[in-house]
């Protein structure tokens, strides 16, 4: 026992990325040690899901490419992040995703596609997609699974990594795999407690606030006209950090900073949706 927490002594290890020697603490992943490797399924508050395969890199001695989001650095490892092989893989993964999924609200993905020359239309007009009507079954949020890339982040956020409500899971298999409540029940009949922590981590906009969904539908959603201001929640004394996204002096979305030691990006229904009272005029 010590009065002070003395912490765990950490070793430093060296490895090579694209020819450059880098030193990182033991336990670091390749992704954390490199800048700007594109990824969709990696969440800074979640365990790596290893699902999207956008962040694949070459590691010398490995038969296949390696997911940089989850692979821990080993001493002497030689990593290449930008080779013909990694670019081919990234191009194909983005093409496959783009051919099956609506990526129109996925931040940065068009930039990455342009970078590697991805063309999802290559698979032809008859390529199977996950297109389906958006699920609007409650007043607070919308699930548009046409945009779902099955990154598992919402399931992990709802499950034992954060919210522990377990309202949703991956169901089905293969191309039919999808995020679902039990027996596809509407959210109000499920274990959902409307914390919105799934929306917080969704990388594609498949999950969104009802307000955002409606505004997008009527063409009034304008991110360039929005401000994001971080403040503190007015409900209870835990002191959760809220980032209020405001357009035309109207709160249109609430997020929480992922680096907050209080919330790690998570909120409850009151923090996420309880702001309406100040705007009732």
């Amino acid at each position: 026992m010590t009065i002070v927490d003395i912490g765990l002594p950490r070793r430093l290890i060296e490895f090579t990325v694209d020819g450059e020697q880098i030193t990182v603490p033991e336990g670091a992943t390749i992704l954390s040690a490199c800048k700007d490797i594109p990824t969709l399924c990696y969440g800074d508050t979640l365990e790596p899901a290893n699902a999207c395969r956008v962040c694949m890199v070459e590691v010398e001695g490995s038969r296949t490419l390696v997911p940089s989001c989850s692979r821990k650095v080993e001493p002497g490892m030689v990593v290449r992040t930008d080779t013909e092989r990694t670019r081919h893989s990234r191009r194909m993964v983005l093409e496959l995703l783009g051919s099956a999924t609506d990526l129109s609200t996925t931040p940065r993905v068009s930039e990455w596609m342009a970078e590697v020359g991805a063309d999802p239309s290559r698979f032809g007009p008859d390529a199977a997609t996950v297109s389906q009507p958006a699920l609007v079954d409650n007043p607070l949020y919308v699930r548009d699974y046409s945009k779902c890339i099955l990154c598992y982040k919402c399931v992990d956020a709802c499950g034992d990594q954060w919210q522990n409500s377990f309202a949703i899971a991956v169901a089905g298999r293969g191309f039919d795999a999808h995020i679902s409540t039990e027996f596809s029940a509407p959210l109000p009949d499920s274990a959902c407690v409307y914390c919105g922590n799934c929306i917080e981590v969704c990388p594609t906009g498949a999950l969104s606030f009802r307000r955002e969904f409606d505004k997008r539908a009527d063409g009034t959603w304008d991110e360039s006209a929005q401000t994001a201001t971080t403040t503190v929640c007015t409900f209870c004394g835990v002191g959760c950090n809220l980032t209020l996204h405001v357009q035309d002096n109207e709160i249109v979305k609430v997020t929480s900073p992922h680096d907050s030691t209080v919330t790690h990006g998570n909120l409850c229904i009151k923090g996420r949706f309880g702001w309406q009272h100040v705007q009732n005029t």
Partner: peptide, 9 residues
């Protein structure tokens, strides 16, 4: 199984 993109799609 549907877990990763290269195989699922």
């Amino acid at each position: 199984c549907g877990q990763c993109v290269p195989c699922r799609i």
